[in-house]
Amino acid sequence: MAASVSLPMREPCYVAVGVMTVPHYRNRRDAARQTWMTGSNVGSTVVVRFLIRAGGLHPDVLAEAKREQDEHGDMTFLPVASEHGSPPQRGRVLTLHAWTRRATAVCPTARWVSKADDDVYIVTVDWEAQLRMIAAGREGRAMLHGKVVWHNWNVKHFVPHSFDYSYNPDNWRRVIDYLGGDESRARFPDERRRFELCRTHGARQCEWCPAEAECTGPF
C-alpha cells in the first residue's frame, strides 16, 4: 500500500497588491519578481498582480504581454484605455477603480486591497504584519492606510492639479486671480513664471486650475 503524503495547507490570502505598470516596463516587473516578490508570504497570504491597461493596446504589444502572463501568471489585464490616446492621470484613476473591483476575484479572502507602482520595493512580510496590527480589533471597519496626498481636480480635463502635493485653496485662488488680470497675486518671480505657463500652455499642462469653474478639490 502506498503511503499517503500530507501536504501543508496554504494560508488564505490576506492582502491583494495591485502593481500599476505598462507593457514596455518588463524590466521593472522582472526586477520585482527577482527581489521583493520572492518574499515567503508572496503567493499565499499576499497575492501580487501587475495591472495592465489593456484597452486599445496595439495587437503586437498585447500579444507580448500575454506571452509574459503565460510565463509568470502574475498579470491582470483591465478594461481601461492604454496610455495611448488617453491622459495618463485618467488611466491611473480608472486602473485603481478597476483593481478595487477585480481584487476580490483574485483574492476572495482579502482583508486589504493595496496599490503600488512598479518602481517600489515592498518588504511583504513586514507590510502584512503592519496591516494585521492595524486591523486588530477593528473588524468590519473601513480603513485607508498609506501615503495620501491631496490634489485639486480639473473636472473638464480629468487631470489633477497640485500645489506641491497639497490642497491649498489660497494658492488655487491666487493663480485664478493672476490669470484674471491681477498680476500682484504672484508673490515672487519664479511663481510668476509658473503662473505664466498656465497662460501659455492652457489647462491640460498647467499645474493649477486656470478657472474656478474648472476645478474642484481636494481629491
Rank of each mutant, 00 (worst) to 15 (best):
S4Y: 12
V5T: 14
V5L: 15
V5C: 12
M9K: 13
M9I: 14
E11P: 14
C13L: 04
V15W: 04
V17L: 13
V19W: 04
V22S: 10
P23H: 04
H24Q: 05
R26I: 09
R26T: 13
R28T: 05
R29P: 00
R33S: 07
R33K: 07
T38A: 09
G39K: 00
G39A: 14
N41S: 09
G43H: 03
S44R: 12
T45Y: 04
V46K: 00
V47G: 08
V47C: 09
I52K: 00
I52C: 02
A54P: 00
G55Q: 05
D60V: 11
A63C: 05
A65W: 01
K66N: 08
H72M: 01
G73W: 03
P79E: 07
H84G: 03
G85R: 01
P88F: 04
P88T: 09
G91P: 01
R92S: 13
R92P: 01
A98S: 13
W99K: 06
T100Q: 09
A103E: 12
V106M: 05
V106G: 07
C107N: 06
A110W: 02
W112P: 12
K115E: 14
D118P: 02
I122V: 15
V123Y: 13
V125Q: 15
E128V: 07
Q130I: 03
M133N: 13
I134M: 10
A135S: 12
E139W: 04
G140W: 05
M143A: 10
M143K: 01
L144H: 07
G146D: 03
K147R: 13
W150F: 08
H151Q: 11
H151A: 06
N152G: 14
P160A: 02
S162H: 09
S162L: 01
S162T: 12
F163I: 13
Y165M: 11
S166K: 11
Y167N: 03
N168M: 03
D170A: 12
N171Y: 03
R174M: 04
V175G: 00
V175R: 10
I176C: 11
D177V: 05
D182S: 11
D182N: 13
E183T: 10
F188T: 09
P189M: 06
D190V: 11
R193H: 11
R194S: 10
R194P: 00
R194T: 10
F195K: 03
F195E: 06
F195Q: 11
H201Q: 07
A203P: 10
C209I: 04
A211G: 12
C215G: 15
T216P: 03
G217T: 01
